[in-house]
Deep mutational scan, measured.
Amino acid sequence: GSPGIQSFLPPGWEMRIAPNGRPFFIDHNTKTTTWEDPRLK
C-alpha cells in the first residue's frame, strides 16, 4: 500500500476531514487548526 498523506505532514500535525468534505489541518504543537496545508508554506 502507499503511505498515507499523514506521513508527509510536519511533526505534531494531523489532517482531518471536515463535515463538508474539506480537509483541514490540526497543529497539536500550538493547539490550532487551519485550512492551509502546512507543507505549502
Rank of each mutant, 00 (worst) to 15 (best):
G1D: 13
G1F: 12
G1Y: 12
S2T: 14
S2K: 13
S2L: 13
S2R: 13
S2Q: 13
P3F: 09
P3K: 14
P3M: 12
P3H: 13
P3V: 13
G4T: 10
G4F: 04
I5C: 15
I5F: 12
Q6Y: 01
Q6F: 02
Q6W: 00
Q6G: 14
Q6T: 14
S7H: 12
S7R: 10
F8A: 15
F8N: 15
F8Q: 15
F8Y: 13
L9E: 01
L9C: 05
P10D: 04
P10H: 03
P11V: 07
P11C: 15
G12D: 03
G12V: 01
W13L: 01
E14N: 02
E14S: 07
M15S: 04
M15D: 00
M15I: 09
M15P: 00
M15K: 06
R16A: 09
R16M: 09
R16D: 04
I17R: 08
I17G: 01
I17T: 08
A18R: 03
A18H: 09
A18Q: 05
A18I: 02
A18K: 04
A18M: 10
P19L: 09
P19T: 10
N20V: 01
N20Y: 01
G21D: 04
R22W: 11
R22T: 11
P23S: 08
P23T: 08
P23G: 05
P23W: 13
F24E: 11
F24I: 15
F24D: 04
F24Y: 15
F25K: 00
F25T: 00
F25N: 00
I26S: 02
I26G: 01
I26A: 02
I26N: 01
I26W: 05
D27M: 01
D27P: 00
D27H: 07
D27V: 01
D27R: 00
H28V: 08
H28F: 08
H28E: 06
H28D: 05
N29V: 11
N29L: 10
N29Q: 07
T30M: 06
T30I: 02
K31Y: 07
K31E: 10
K31P: 04
T32L: 08
T32N: 08
T32A: 07
T33G: 08
T33Y: 12
T33H: 09
T34N: 03
W35P: 03
W35Q: 05
W35K: 04
W35L: 08
E36R: 10
E36I: 11
D37W: 04
D37M: 02
D37Y: 03
D37I: 01
P38N: 00
P38K: 00
R39V: 05
R39N: 07
R39L: 05
L40I: 11
L40E: 14
L40K: 10
L40W: 11
L40M: 11
L40D: 12
K41N: 13
K41I: 15
